[in-house]
Design a protein around this nucleic acid. Structure first.
Lengths: 292, 292
DNA sequence: GTGAAAGCGCTAACAT
DNA sequence: ATGTTAGCGCTTTCAC
């Protein structure tokens, strides 16, 4: 037939739009695109539409995106890595009705209005170090991200913690900050190997820098994984396709997006039993850059 | 201040929602995520919001997503690789007001209501073959996609055309269909090299199958690019990060998404001078899998 | 000019 | 049960 009720008019009279917003730094990054995918699958299944916006780690863009969601009277929103202050966020939570935060620090949590979901980066780093230790490694280097990165700080924390837990000294010389890309990882490991040729294991901030690490090791004549073992973070598609394929700490991005959406829709539909804080645990994927 | 006009109410009275839909097969594919990125940047800049939905190459999902956009009274939509019949599409064009199609075959084009944007895959294959020929190759194999894929057919066409244009015979034995993934490419090239050890160049349907092709060549003891040159299609991030880095036919996905959105907003805002058909030309990116 | 009123297309509360 | 009406929050028209 040729008639469909107007969602606008319905929304105006019921105060329900069946629309949710999803704000990510950049949807073209593999990490976010998979999260969005998981969230979209869940929301469309439940009859909700997804407004997508990129914030580009830019406060003004985030604010204008939030205002836009407010204008549109969305039923709720998911914010990844929000940059706003707790005060600002409190007002936005009230305007947007329901908000789920992912990996955002210090967010306000209003009863049955907001929820915080966080990836346990420390655990991720710890299980990687634990694996190294269990294989007998003692000289374990870390390619860290710049300290502006909160996930970088958490992974660094986890690395330190794990070493202490296993009774290994934390040698600051084995920690090298780099821009988390292939060249950054390459340069960092080049430096590390010059100063500390006895390194036998490297934990990288992410897969991209891990790939740079692999290249640097190769160029130094180190065999992987026999001379040096490497573990990355993220499990980008390339990780399994590379040779040697990259061992990595995987976060299930699709499940994360899906969980965030499930949580948000739960809030919207009045589920009282939604935990205010949820922790996502990453998992170690062992491939060819670590010895079995 | 604490007040913002309701977009719903405005939309109801003006028949303009400043919302557009974007239907893609799967936003988590690198190709689509970059397209969406380009489109979102343009739309948010122009004050329009983006409703994203995945159709998963599934007619029913596409239809329900379209109905949903209709319910929401979007000002227009972009459809990638639509699966619907021209008749169905005609009615949806009327319901959604304005539609831009990307890489969708045989779409109806209603004056100042719909536009079709297509990637010139034939040209892409032709410039790749042309490069091979200019380097003296005569035994040029093609790893093709299954014939359900329209881009696969167009690339096959371009390959055939180019060979003819350069006076080379089209040897059907040098054309091998495969599922366009790494293993598919690996298997295809393994077979090809067994039957035709004299092959010196391979054009792959996409980068993933090209990576499989590289592996197969390596396993056959062929040096790249000295014994065999390889060109892929897409320019996925891995292409430039691989060793050897992969020469490929690149489509500027972000520009494509941005152009599609620009075109759509042009239609919506009544630009009369929008061409009904637009062609996007891919570009050859030469890296280490081809000789310079 | 400023201000009141009608209408956009629904839902929900009411009345028959 | 079915039918009528008010109101959601804007824009636009029409009157003053």
């Amino acid at each position: 037939m040729g008639y469909r009720p107007s969602g606008l008019a319905r929304g105006l009279s019921t105060n329900r739009t069946y629309t949710v917003g999803f704000l990510v730094p950049d949807n073209s990054h593999h990490f976010f695109s998979l999260m969005v995918r998981g969230a979209e699958a869940f929301s469309s299944d439940a009859g909700y539409s997804l407004l997508l916006a990129n914030t580009l780690k830019n406060q003004e863009l985030e604010t204008s995106a939030l205002n836009n969601l407010w204008d549109r009277r969305v039923d709720g929103a998911i914010l990844y890595a929000s940059l706003l202050s707790p005060e600002q966020l409190t007002t936005y939570i009230e305007r947007l009705e329901h908000v789920v935060f992912i990996n955002s620090p210090n967010v306000p949590m209003l009863e049955s209005k907001s929820v915080s979901i966080n990836v346990d980066d420390q655990l991720g780093a710890r299980i990687a170090v634990q694996h190294f230790v269990s294989k007998g490694h003692t000289q374990i280097a870390l390619i860290s991200a710049p300290m502006i990165s909160s996930s970088g700080r958490r992974r660094l924390d986890g690395y330190r913690q794990a070493l202490s837990d296993f009774g290994l000294p934390v040698d600051e010389d084995l920690i090298c900050e780099c821009i988390p890309h292939t060249e950054g990882g390459y340069n960092a490991v080049t430096h590390l190997l010059q100063a500390h040729p006895d390194i036998t294991a490297i934990l990288a901030y992410n897969d991209l820098s891990a790939i740079g690490a692999i290249r640097a090791c190769e160029d130094h004549g180190k065999k992987i994984p026999d001379d040096i073992a490497i573990i990355g973070f993220d499990d980008i598609p390339m990780a399994s396709l590379l040779r040697p394929s990259l061992s990595t700490v995987r976060i299930d991005k699709q499940a994360l997006g899906s969980l965030a959406m499930e949580t948000l829709l739960g809030l919207i539909e009045g589920n009282k039993d939604t935990p205010q804080i949820q922790i996502i645990q990453p998992r170690l994927i062992l491939r060819q850059t670590t010895r079995s």
